[in-house]
Amino acid sequence: MSGKLSFKGFCIILAALFTAILFIAIAFLFFVPSPQEIWKSMTSPEMIFSLKLSVITAAVSSAIVMLLGIPIGYALSRFSFFGKSIVKSVIDLPMAFPELVLGLSLLLFFGNTYVSRSFEIIGLKIVFTKLGIVVAQIFTALPYSTRIIYSAFEGVNRRYELVSRSLGYGEFETFTKITLPLAKKGLFASTIIAFARCMGAFGAVLILAGGSYMNTETLPIALYLNMSYGNLGMAITSGIVLIIVSFIAIAIFEKLEGLNAVKS
């Protein structure tokens, strides 16, 4: 009995300790620099540029991620097709795959190949551009989102769809009228994760988009660049802004989800 109790105590203390350290570390971010310094950095043109760039690219990327992730997640959940297990593992791969290596692979793929040339013909330049930021963010966030979308669809009993089909609705109508609304919660969660991942994407963005000052400088890259210049105030401020934006995003989505739940 006492052995059990002390093990329970051990686990709880460990959990509490780790959480405390994490919170204190995050708090340091806010309290180490002086407020004036933060304010000065916050209003600097570089920071405003980074913030804008990050929010816009992350919003565009997470929208694309959801547009891609929903059909992919649905295919993986509902249909059996040739090579399904391969598709599944490819989607899982980047989770264990270092982001830097992902960026390098993307750079080589979009670099000086037929792919990049055919993109350039239609006026799209990916390497070392803002478009590159979006591409890198999509590849970073898609696996995470697809996973959540997949389990959201798995959570919808297939028989709802079958009943809808038998009542005269085709595959796509059934999907929009029954499956999507029933998977709503998971899709919201997936959007939040996608946005957070896109905001925080660093390694792949740095390599594919180049991380150049006031051009492809998203918030994580601003943090990195200022850190390496020894510009601690700017670096910390980037970190603070990143955290605030993430929290706001989560709050907005939860609010939206709450509103939706009330409506239905």
Binding site: Y160, V163, R165, S166, L167, G170, S264
Partner: peptide, 20 residues
Amino acid sequence: LPPEKRGISMVYQDYMLFPN
């Protein structure tokens, strides 16, 4: 023929009423 074209309705044991 796809199910939506058959004119056959289905009632399941656990009813499957659309919760939305």
